[in-house]
Simulated scan of single mutants.
Amino acid sequence: MRAIWKGAVSFGLVNVPVRLFSATQEHDIRFHQVHREDGGRIRMKRMCSVCGEEVAWDQLAKGYESEDGRLVVLNDEDFDALPLSTGREIDVVEFVPTGQVDPVLFGKSYYLEPDARAAKPYALLREALEATDRVAVVKVALRQRESLAVLRVRDRVIMMQTLLWPDEIRAAEFPILEDEVDLRPQELRMAASLVDSMAADFEPDQYEDEYQQALVQLVEAKLEGAEPAPAKADEEATTEVVDLLSALQASVDRAKASRGEKPADAPAKKTASRSPARKTAAAKTGTARKAPAKKAASKTAAKKTPARKSA
């Protein structure tokens, strides 16, 4: 890995020289825009909308247009003149409990490697963060911009994660969530049961980017001039509207089945299967008991018949 920044972590009067490394990387395949007919690369030219000339990189500047249409042009010298109090320092502002930082604020992650002469203060900061279960809130200047960030420990390495500023988080304004929803106790219990049946320790290594793997196989097949393997068809999602409680129960059963466990309603199904047999037996008994009554009725009718003839 190549260091992208050099500076120092400053907390109190302690200074820890460090190098900054990007902790993440994208594995997406990079595509170029090409002409479909002959595969020629599509080149984008930087054309000026006023004079119509192509503009070289060293002639580019940054412009801001106000709401009333006025334009302000800023060059590199303007940006260099802006005050950045953090300069080449990661300035610790305060230490806060780990759970108080909302994950929605997290941005990009970096590793901090200590300078050879800073191994001891680096270890001191790392152990202090772990012992107190806190993260350090810091300010740092990256790419000519001041950022808010936190320092936390991961596998004996101090990481820095940039944070969004509070005004960069959009408010979730959905009127539908303001309406009261009537949840039945049995639905809440079944939902909790579903959560329990799918509970596990988070192990990210067990997950794979199936789309990325299929894309790599497609590209490799195209390079070799072979036909790509047909994609596996996904199971069609049911569009039938079912009762929420039934859907939760079915979800619990499916989750348990995937873990090799017996569904909770298995005994109930066996009992239900015996019920028709009992009903049939009862029906037969009832029929047997009613039969003598019919026979007796026919005998009575037979006795009355001669009386009618004699009359």
Rank of each mutant, 00 (worst) to 15 (best):
V252T: 08
K304Q: 01
I42G: 07
E224R: 15
S273L: 06
S310F: 14
R134W: 07
V14F: 09
Q161N: 15
R289M: 15
Y207V: 02
Q249N: 13
D115G: 09
A61D: 03
L74N: 15
A297H: 08
F31K: 03
A119T: 09
P103G: 06
V181L: 15
V157K: 04
T24V: 07
L148I: 08
A257P: 06
G87C: 05
A247F: 13
L71F: 07
L142S: 08
A266W: 12
P17G: 03
V150H: 10
S85D: 14
E224V: 02
K232M: 13
L60W: 01
E146L: 11
A288E: 11
S49K: 07
L223C: 12
V101A: 13
K295F: 10
G87P: 10
N75G: 08
Q217T: 13
A8P: 08
Q25E: 15
E236F: 04
R274I: 14
M47I: 15
C51A: 01
A191S: 09
R254Y: 05
D265P: 04
M47F: 11
D68S: 05
A192D: 14
D76L: 09
A301R: 05
R19Q: 09
S197A: 15
T162N: 06
P83C: 00
T271C: 06
V16D: 06
D234Q: 11
S246A: 12
G12F: 08
D167F: 04
E220C: 03
L60G: 03
S310W: 15
G39P: 01
A233I: 04
